[in-house]
């Protein structure tokens, strides 16, 4: 279709360019700020051309506040969240789509309802659970009067078990973020588009349900998995509120938290914007790398789409 709408084109382009500027200008500022010394950055107006302090600033950023350790923490959490979310959601979507069990649709709608409940909404109860996941068990043992007999019979220290906590642990950082209604929903919709004959052919070929999932559904979901990996990795990497709440030890801090703590570390002092921006660049790098690396597969998956 060929249309000639010069005015509409002009307006559209102005809007688009404005959008690009709005997104890119802060990034450009961060990049510029990371290349200057602190006094230069604090000038008014701030210089708009790159300086030559980038390397120094990057080194300072790495050295200050244990950024290396924090990047590793962030990486563990993001990978854990991504892998966990995909594994959990593909399994629950598989169960909901292919098995007939009581309250199947109830389960689906419960999952669907949590789409509207991000972690920020349930953060207080989630914290309570993460702090003492087995407290309920202790209460139950107390109520039923089984604690004494159990301790004397097995020699277990029930108190220690009940006091077990997920605070300041990778499990605590990852597990509460793992359930994903969005991913479950996406996989369910994908599975619904896969013709039922494939399932029947696999049944006749002698495939068990898990074989069908691994041999047929998983390869057919690759494109979705890649797209989800990109989204979920960035989601996990950018987590702020939950890691802030659940970690107190410096060794468990994630990179995003670490950076924000540096800003507010000394309220009376001027934040060292040049090294902070250099740190921000370093922290932005892994998600960018994931996007760039998977982009190719993402497009490839779309191109030789096998449906």
């Amino acid at each position: 279709m060929i249309e000639r709408t010069p005015w509409l084109d002009l307006v559209c382009h102005i809007l688009l360019i404005a959008g690009v500027v709005a997104v890119c200008l802060p990034l450009y500022y961060a990049l510029i700020a990371a290349t200057h010394t602190l006094p230069d950055v604090l000038q008014v107006p701030m210089p708009l051309t790159p300086g030559n302090e980038l390397w120094t600033n990057l080194k300072t950023a790495m050295a200050r506040g244990d950024l290396g350790r924090q990047l590793v923490n962030s990486l563990i959490v993001s990978v854990g969240v991504t892998v966990g979310k995909i594994a959990l959601s593909i399994l629950s979507a598989f169960a909901i789509t292919y098995f007939r069990f009581p309250f199947r649709m109830t389960a689906f709608w419960l999952i669907f309802a949590t789409l509207m409940l991000p972690i920020e909404v349930r953060i207080v109860p989630t914290y309570a659970v993460a702090a003492h996941p087995l407290q309920g068990l202790g209460w139950l043992l107390d109520q039923t009067g089984l604690r004494g007999p159990l301790e004397s019979l097995t020699g277990w220290n029930v108190e220690a078990v009940v006091k077990w906590s997920l605070l300041d642990s990778y499990a605590g950082l990852i597990l509460p973020l793992m359930a994903s209604a969005t991913a479950t929903f996406l996989f369910r919709q994908l599975f619904l588009t896969i013709p039922e004959e494939l399932l029947e052919a696999a049944k006749i070929d002698g495939a068990s349900p898990m074989r069908f999932l691994i041999d047929v559904l998983w390869p057919m979901s690759r494109t979705n998995v890649v797209a989800l990996t990109v989204i979920l990795f960035v989601f996990g990497w950018n987590q702020y509120l939950w890691p802030l709440l659940i970690t107190t030890e410096a060794s468990m801090t994630t990179a995003v938290i670490g950076l924000s703590k540096q800003i507010s570390a000394a309220p009376e002092a001027v934040p060292k914007w040049n090294t902070l921006m250099a740190g921000a660049l370093l922290i932005t790098l892994p998600p960018v790398m994931v996007v760039v690396a998977l982009q190719r597969w993402f497009v490839k998956g779309l191109v030789d789409s096998e449906k």
Binding site: P195, E197, L198, A201, A202, K203, G206, V216, M220
Partner: peptide, 20 residues
């Protein structure tokens, strides 16, 4: 018996080949 235990093979109308 499950389909796999029946010693049968089936050809479907739309072939139902595994696309990947």
């Amino acid at each position: 018996l499950e389909p796999r235990e029946r010693d049968i093979a089936m050809v479907f109308q739309n072939y139902a080949l595994y696309p990947h």
